[in-house]
Design a protein around this nucleic acid. Sequence first.
DNA 1: TGCCATACCTTGAACCACGAGGTATATCTC
DNA 2: GAGATATACCTCGTGGTTCAAGGTATGGCA
Lengths: 118, 118
Amino acid sequence: MTRQTNPDYLNGVPELLVLQLLARRPMYGYELVRAIEQTSGQVLEFGEGCIYPVLHRLEKEGHLASRRETVAGRSRVVYRVTAPGRKRLAGRLAVWRSVVAAVDQVLQGAQHAKSAVS
Amino acid sequence: MTRQTNPDYLNGVPELLVLQLLARRPMYGYELVRAIEQTSGQVLEFGEGCIYPVLHRLEKEGHLASRRETVAGRSRVVYRVTAPGRKRLAGRLAVWRSVVAAVDQVLQGAQHAKSAVS
DNA sequence: TGCCATACCTTGAACCACGAGGTATATCTC
DNA sequence: GAGATATACCTCGTGGTTCAAGGTATGGCA
């Protein structure tokens, strides 16, 4: 009960951030987990158990492509965004912005959004 | 797969909006569903199957209080926010804003938040 | 040698929005 | 007055997703 751990409001956010970060430059899973953590100032902390499944799913859907790389004896799976992936990113980004705008509208207004007039 | 219906990013949003709308004035369930739909410009469409459970849970937790009302032969359950409810609203609002800020930070920045030089 | 950080992965549980379905009354239409 | 529509309440089952925890393996450091 109570569910006091993490804040929520996060549904779909991992995928959005993964796509955006990878659109900037190819990265590997462990790196992504750290990048999200640091860049958000520790506000967003998606574990590996969240990020890896997202990566695998996106790759299976054709939105990401992966390539194995070995650096200093360590094997990494580096992901990059494909063309369909960029389209998906654009879509998810638009949805995110519209949702945030809609929530803010309900939070603030409510009185003026009724039916134009005033 | 597919899951193309609604955008997501919505986890916990219904509770936030319900608390905020009720903090403005008491309302009943059906009215809340409509209000959210209209005010958000049809972007957010939480069904009754989403709102009613939220209302019941919040009331059970003491964040809402209800009162039966009969208008034109129609029975309504009107909810209002309690003092603990207002505290919860403040908290959820703060979390929402911090999450949105964090997501935007990751979406935009990332290059300057790294660690200076490379 | 032992420990920690890196780097990958899977599994199980919990949660939540959603759709579909169910009841009942008032009003509007034909 | 018969039927459809709108109001108003409610519950249940499903599916997707985040999260915590655990599991494997290698390299660097003390």
